[in-house]
């Protein structure tokens, strides 16, 4: 029962803030809604018995990625001139509605197995064991990817020698 209430409240929060992310004229407000959406999704994870993933979501998405996006926004805009225009409005609505209809139709029409059993709660230990045994190679590849993106970002964003300012 409490799970259902939490689910509906959090879904409402996530969808409303996501709507604001894509529709808000003021891009700074859209960024703040994005953070609200991330926190809502973290709540969904906690509802799914994955508190560690929820904490990671808050730490990485809300605390780092969103702040980085806001940072990029602040560096590329004049103060308080945050109004945005948009294009391809009809095509966007058409594609999104089509996508939603196809997905929801598929989900509603499919027969789901495995959803009747008692869900289990994963600890951090099972995750760690998985990363250190089955998924070790992918784990290392992701680590390499992070290193590459770190260096790539530094090289791309740094100022050229003798450029202005």
């Amino acid at each position: 029962m409490s799970e259902a209430i939490a689910f509906y409240v959090l879904s409402g929060l996530v969808l409303a803030s996501a709507w604001s992310v894509v529709r808000n004229e003021n891009l700074f407000h859209a960024g703040l809604s994005l953070i609200l959406c991330f926190v809502g999704v973290a709540g969904i994870y906690v509802n799914l018995d994955a508190p560690f993933l929820g904490a990671m979501q808050v730490l990485i998405y809300a605390g780092a990625i969103a702040v980085l996006l806001l940072f990029g926004f602040m560096l590329t805009h004049d103060l308080m001139n945050a109004k945005q225009e948009r294009n391809q409005h009809a095509a966007g609505i058409f594609a999104a509605v089509l996508m939603a209809l196809v997905l929801i139709g598929t989900i509603a029409g499919a027969q789901w197995y495995g959803s009747s059993g008692q869900p289990v709660k994963f600890g951090v230990e099972s995750l760690a064991r998985r990363y250190m045994q089955q998924d070790l190679v992918s784990f290392e590849v992701v680590a390499l990817l992070l290193l590459a993106s770190l260096m790539g970002a530094v090289v791309i964003a740094r100022k050229e020698e003798g450029s202005r300012d």
Partner: peptide, 13 residues
């Protein structure tokens, strides 16, 4: 269960 991570992640906000 996730005490330390909770503190770190919440204070990152």
């Amino acid at each position: 269960n996730i005490g330390v991570v909770h503190v770190v992640s919440i204070s990152s906000l």
